[in-house]
Write a protein that binds this DNA or RNA. Structure first.
Lengths: 234, 234
DNA sequence: ACACATTTGTCCGTATGTATC
DNA sequence: TGATACATACGGACAAATGTG
């Protein structure tokens, strides 16, 4: 892995472990700690800023954002590629609602930018955080890219399977957030009051070279989660 | 303004004007066009990536993301500091629902990280996009920082007043997204069916030096808008 | 109010690695 | 395979904001 990414990950670990106080060491101290150049340490720092871990004050220092890190009820969109990564302190489990291999119809093909008839895995899961129902995820994987999936993998983290076993690199995603009234069945799954609405995130996920390997629609339990995102003015 | 920011803005303008095709010129061509160094052009490019204008493919080039730019129904969170900036192609107007000067109670003081009793402007507005009701914004401004506001300013863009007239620099914000059932009055304002729910964004806005000058809660009309955010894996 | 040291921000140049075509 | 194009990393110089005395 690139140096600046390794440094960033180490700094994140230290922040989560409260190894620093309210402030990070200065750039100068950090580049000495990690034996890298100033540009490299600044690349690492910028990742932390983008993900909402810290904010910078010119002339003063690097300050840790206390609030949103490690809170079960806060889902940080800036880090949100796969659930397990966003909430590493919590146990994410799944109940499989549907698993199958289908063939892309016109709409799916359009969303995937693939040919009609392309084989697609469909995985619908009820997901739990620390045993509380968190979300209903309806997800589609392009089988030409994700060659093999099964129910066992789907019960666990599909994303860690893709990254660790298939060695594919997930690069970026587009997220569309809206509100959807829930059906009675969905309310039961999520254990919320009938007639309520929920946050829905439509997601398009890309490998490197901008290959779409996955699209999904997820309904979140409002009682369990608030979305968070930091925004930097450039 | 910094060179890389000027370059980024110019590139954004060109993208919005469809001055490039599907691809941007290469880094090398761009740095020659703008007479800047490679680092500078790359800083500018990274802004466009972060804001969802383009994506990069190593070895191939810089590709323009068609979909989300200039769409009235898509509110790009990565650019969302003030509404007028996010949707420059559209007319944003406001109807003032409430305007007043109040004194920070315990809760407001805590949210603002200021003393109890600090003077605070409250501005509640119904906002329209191209004359369609878009959102109900309930907003608070710390008078110690934003020294003067009036109803006239509030009817127009408060953010452009802050930046252009007061010459204050808005630096970053924290956004919390959830779902809220609407009251009948809110439904009428937004012209949506009674009993429906809406996206709510709680926002904390900072000047440089991490000074909180504004917090707000905004209810969005789901019929008019979908939130969008690009996420880069680092 | 001023001068000074500290700390982050911007910009430049160069070299080499990696992915795509 | 070679050429092209983006990615990573190092080094140095000066500017701007902050904090201190």
């Amino acid at each position: 892995m690139a140096k600046y990414k390794e440094v960033a990950e180490d700094m994140q670990r230290k922040i989560r472990a409260h190894a620093f106080g309210k402030k990070l060491p200065t750039e100068k101290e950090l580049l000495e700690m990690y034996s890298v150049s100033r540009n490299t340490i600044r690349s690492a720092i910028n990742i932390l800023v983008k993900q909402g871990y810290i904010h910078k004050i010119q002339g003063s220092g690097l300050y840790i954002n206390k609030k949103t890190i490690g809170d079960r009820n806060v889902l940080n969109l800036a880090v949100k590629i796969g659930l397990s990564r966003v909430l590493p302190e919590h146990s994410i489990t799944s109940k499989l609602l549907n698993f199958g291999l289908i063939s892309a119809d016109k709409k799916l093909a359009s969303n995937f930018s693939c040919d009609i008839g392309t084989p697609i895995y469909r995985v619908k899961r009820l997901r739990f955080i620390d045993n509380h129902p968190l979300s209903i995820e309806d997800s589609y994987y392009n089988k030409n890219i994700i060659k093999y999936l099964n129910e066992d993998i789907a019960k666990n983290s599909i994303y860690s399977y893709i990254e660790n076993d298939l060695k594919l690199e997930i690069r970026f995603s587009d997220e569309y957030i809206s509100v959807k009234p829930l059906t009675d069945e969905e309310c039961e799954h999520l254990n919320v009051q009938k007639g309520s609405s929920s946050l829905m995130i439509r997601e398009i996920n890309y490998l490197k070279s901008s290959i779409i390997f996955n699209i999904s629609e997820t309904l979140y339990n409002n009682d369990q989660i608030v979305l968070y995102t930091p925004v930097q003015r450039d």
